[in-house]
Design a protein around this nucleic acid. Structure first.
Length: 950
DNA sequence: GCGGATCAC
DNA sequence: CATGGTGATCCGC
């Protein structure tokens, strides 16, 4: 055989003879093509060179092709494929993913202007690949693209509201590629397919285009990801009838007796021929129905049938042996053509994309009636009832009432609009598949196997190979193994991950992180300072230990690129990021070009509103599975729907929830990074195999108390409240807590109290089922005062002093734009006015302050602990905690004042804490609730109160 | 103050 | 066979 060099020479000759372009053979690695391309160029070939792309679609065809083409398959590719060679679906998904990566690399190289696909007459994979490639250049479709990348999928596994049929729908969503998000599909198909009737109704709805008993029309179907073809209209009524009776049709065609092939409904070609087809139904039904079906069908000699079940035990046809049956055929002038056959052997017809065995397995799993599922069912019932109540409440409102409500909401929104702050630049950084990425980096062998991080009972995350099998975060390990028997599960090692956790202190010393893999930073200051940066300060090695360098510019976009680059330099891990004017938006943005990408949202009201308009509500931090379900029962699916339903929401939601929703719909979000100075509780809990024995439980309780107290002491904290948490084997949760007479860190006191709570439950309820979980938690925490000699400054300056002086301070220090500020101040004052009315029932800062003052005359406690943090950071970062009881302006200015005097002290305090708390970082975590959870009953109700009371 | 529910990660 | 741990918030009572 000719050598590579010879081949190239011949190729050059062909081109010289006039070839217009070159299409390459198939290849597996981008480098192969890149080298070929550059070799061609180097010998003077100038025509277009188009890479020939071969999507791996099946193990057998790969083997064949490779043999015929005398190709070498890269080892690592084989290593991936071998374990899954009998899993057709997995191979196809893997092939698509590989190909997408290959194409993306080639396209990114800038050396090609097109792709040539070897489809081998199977369009599925190619279409899928093109769709995915298209996604990566069009932000529009990011919902779907990111659905594979999400670290935590929408909805916790454990909260799935899909009881008996649930697992089936869940797994479908992983296995079958449908261009809709998982939650959107659950909406259509029902979060609660409770019984056979529900299933039948869903099938019928798909055909009938009717409402699914809920709010949406079923327009996707696992077996057919496209609209029903118009020809179905001819048998539409029959199909609905069948499905309602439990004959579930998955594909069908009407009889056609000689329509033109160009017919807009029945035609299949632009060439002229006559199209004929037999009527056909493919159905799912119960085996029990077979005798009846058989009896009926026998009376129609013109009808052929084929019954088959999963195992193949049932395999019955109306024809003798394996006789093919023509289903569609065309008549050309000269001949018959285009005939497809329903082959007796072909159990896959119309189901190429289904892994039947797996799904059957899943149906089995789903019907297993585990205690867990039963509990889910109970919860679901509960929620359904609550939704019913809500809906009937809505019915009781008159249109006039709703209209009125809308009007007042509009006034509020106008108000809210004025508080919009577009001046800052936030970024949200999110590490891609963080734990899995760390493990793969540290053990490269894991890169080529499906792998997940976590334990047998719960996975934290998975690598992309495992995701091909549907293995993802928040899935129990044992279920993941069902999906992917070769899955490698690596145990979590949080200490290790901590070393690689996101730190962006150089860009914002006040940055906040939530978890190890996420961080928010306010880049506003950095962007200003950066204008003075020398080029050298903005220059970094291109790669680790490389002499090549890369320099980043001044824009936010480039700063974030620099951050991600430096994260990669430091950890060899990739991160995604979002840039926007507030944290809520930044977080949403970081999801858009994930993985390893970033997205900046322009700080422009119109752009922002446009951006959030179509955001599914479930994407919003703070809207979980249940809230989403409730909102969806009000026909709210997207952020824009929130706005549309504002009147009703105002009437039925809690003020805080309502306010939160309005902020979301308005694109508002927090522009201050909050830090919890002091944790509010510490505790430990553990799950175990069913235990009923009292003494065993009590000893466990003591262990947990010990662990908790150890932690308490290590952080120099005292507590005043002990909470016991238990979960029965039926997954029923119970918490019992007791407030102690005084603050303590005594193990005896705390453990005894926990045990007492436990004993009380055991004694009180003889019937109490065995337990599967126990936890001990302590709350109402306070620093041991001896360890906290600082911070007197603030509690001395108690709220009264501040209140009196506030206006002086404002006028003194704040030199902002007059007009706007005046307006703003007025609003804020109005808000405060009504806020004060609310404070009593909100249990806001006021009450806490008094409480603590009473409690501790020493005044060494953090009277308003938030301020401690604020002193370190940007003056404008107001903690909402204080915001609840104090007017925003006032806090800002007061803190400005205090900052000058006491900043060094607080820093020292921080250091003391650091040294005191073991090797682990101080218990100084960012508030979980972040910006998405409302902190106070903001304007809205107060505002309404005002307007209505006048 | 307490207990249940919800949420994030 | 089998569905996590930690910490927080909000609401009703």
């Amino acid at each position: 055989m000719a050598s590579y060099e010879e081949d190239l020479r011949y190729l050059k000759e062909k081109v010289d003879y006039g070839a217009d372009f070159i299409i390459t053979r198939l290849f597996f690695q981008p480098a192969t093509f890149i080298k070929f391309e550059s070799d061609c160029r180097s010998i003077g070939i100038q025509c277009r060179i188009i890479p020939g792309i071969f999507p791996i679609q099946a193990y057998a065809s790969l083997k064949n092709i490779v043999r015929l083409a005398k190709l070498d398959v890269p080892e690592e590719l084989l290593a991936c494929i071998e374990p899954i060679k009998y899993n057709g679906e997995a191979i196809r998904n893997f092939g698509v993913q590989k190909c997408v990566d290959l194409c993306r690399t080639l396209l990114d190289s800038g050396k090609i202007h097109g792709l040539h696909f070897y489809t081998l007459n199977r369009e599925y994979a190619t279409i899928e690949i093109l769709r995915k490639l298209d996604r990566c250049v069009r932000p529009k479709s990011y919902f779907h693209r990111t659905s594979n990348c999400e670290e935590f999928p929408n909805g916790r596994w454990g909260l799935s509201f899909a009881p008996s049929f649930g697992a089936l729908t869940d797994y479908h969503l992983f296995y079958i590629k449908i261009d809709a998000t998982r939650d959107a599909l659950l909406d259509e198909w029902g979060h609660e397919l409770a019984d056979k009737q529900d299933v039948r109704r869903m099938f019928a709805c798909y055909i009938a285009d009717e409402k699914n008993g809920r709010v949406k029309i079923v327009h996707h179907f696992p077996w057919k990801d496209e609209a029903i073809s118009p020809e179905t209209n001819f048998i539409h009524d029959h199909l609905i009838k069948y499905n309602r009776k439990g004959i579930l049709t998955i594909s069908s065609q009407p009889a056609v007796n000689g329509k033109s092939s160009t017919d807009s409904i029945f035609g299949r070609s632009i060439k002229k021929w006559l199209c004929l087809s037999k009527s056909l139904f493919r159905i799912f039904t119960s085996e029990k129905k077979i005798p009846a079906l058989r009896a009926v069908l026998k009376t129609f000699p013109g009808v052929n049938y084929h019954f088959v079940n999963k195992s193949g035990e049932v395999n019955e046809t109306s024809t003798e042996g394996e006789q093919p049956i023509a289903l569609i055929w065309g008549v050309f002038a000269e001949n018959m053509s285009r005939t497809t056959f329903l082959n007796v052997d072909d159990t896959k017809a119309g189901m190429e994309d289904l892994d039947k065995e797996k799904i059957n397995k899943l149906i089995q799993d789903a019907s297993k009636n585990s205690k867990f599922f039963k509990q889910q069912q109970r919860r679901e019932e509960d929620n359904r009832r609550r939704i019913e109540v809500k809906l009937s409440k809505i019915k009781s409102f008159t249109p006039f009432q709703i209209e009125q409500a809308e009007k007042s909401v509009d006034r509020y929104l106008a108000q809210l609009d004025k508080t919009r702050d577009l001046s800052r630049t936030f970024c949200h950084i999110d590490m891609d598949a963080f734990y899995a990425a760390v493990e793969m980096r540290d053990n490269p062998a894991l890169q080529h196997v499906p792998m997940a991080v976590g334990g047998e009972s719960m996975l934290s995350t998975s690598n992309y190979l495992a995701r091909q099998f549907g293995v993802r975060a928040a899935m129990p390990g044992f279920i993941a193994r069902h999906l992917c028997p070769n899955l490698v599960i690596v145990r979590c090692d949080f200490e290790k991950y901590r070393a690689d956790s996101v730190k962006v202190i150089e860009y914002d010393e006040n940055y906040g992180s939530c978890g190890l893999d996420e961080a928010f930073a306010d880049l506003t200051n950095h962007l200003q300072i950066r204008t003075n940066f020398s080029e050298q300060q903005r220059t970094f090695p291109k790669e680790e230990n490389s002499t090549e360098t890369i320099t980043f510019g001044m824009t936010a976009e480039e700063v974030v690129q620099e951050m991600r680059h430096r994260i990669h330099l430091a950890t060899r891990l990739t991160a995604s990021a979002g840039i926007a004017c507030n944290m809520r938006l930044a977080k949403l943005c970081s999801d858009i070009n994930k993985p390893n990408g970033q997205y900046q949202l322009e700080s422009n009201v119109e752009v922002i509103l446009n951006f959030i308009r179509n955001m599914p509500i479930r994407k919003i931090k703070g809207i979980g599975k249940v809230t989403a379900l409730h909102l969806e029962s009000l026909e709210i699916q997207t952020v824009n729907d929130i706005y549309l339903k504002r009147g009703i929401l105002k009437l039925i939601e809690y003020p805080t929830t309502f306010d939160f929703l309005m902020r979301v719909s308005n694109g508002c979000g927090s522009t201050t990074i909050e830090h919890d100075d002091l944790q509010k509780s510490v505790g430990h809990e553990t799950t175990f195999n069913s235990v009923r024995d009292s003494s065993q439980l009590i000893s466990l309780c003591r262990d947990l108390a010990k662990k908790t107290v150890d932690e308490l002491i290590s952080h120099c904290l005292l507590c005043k409240r002990v909470t016991l948490k238990i979960k029965t084997v039926n997954f029923e949760n119970l918490t019992r807590s007791k407030t102690l007479s005084s603050y303590t860190d005594s193990l005896n006191v705390i453990a005894d109290k926990a045990v007492a709570l436990l004993k009380h439950e055991l004694d009180q309820d003889i019937e109490l089922p065995a337990l599967r979980l126990m936890g001990v938690r302590v709350a109402d925490l306070k620093m041991k005062s001896s360890d906290l000699p600082i911070l007197q400054f603030f509690s001395k300056k108690s709220t009264t002093t501040i209140n009196e002086n506030v206006h002086d301070v404002i006028e003194d220090i704040d030199n902002v734009d007059e007009d706007e500020e005046e307006e703003r101040e007025k609003d804020e004052n109005e808000n405060e006015e009504f806020l004060s009315m609310e404070n009593s029932h909100l249990g806001g800062c006021d009450s806490k302050l008094t409480h603590q003052d009473d409690e501790d005359s020493n005044s060494s406690t953090t009277a308003c602990p938030v301020c401690q943090k604020l002193l370190l950071g940007d003056n404008e970062k107001i903690n909402k905690h204080i915001d609840l009881c104090l007017n925003g302006e006032m806090v800002r200015t007061t803190i400005k004042e205090e900052n000058r005097r006491t900043s060094p002290q607080t820093k020292m305090n921080k250091r003391i804490q650091l040294t005191q708390s073991k090797s682990t970082p101080p218990k100084k975590r960012q508030k979980r609730k972040s910006d998405a959870t409302p902190q106070r009953a903001h304007g809205i109700d107060n505002y309404f109160f005002k307007t209505e009371s006048k």
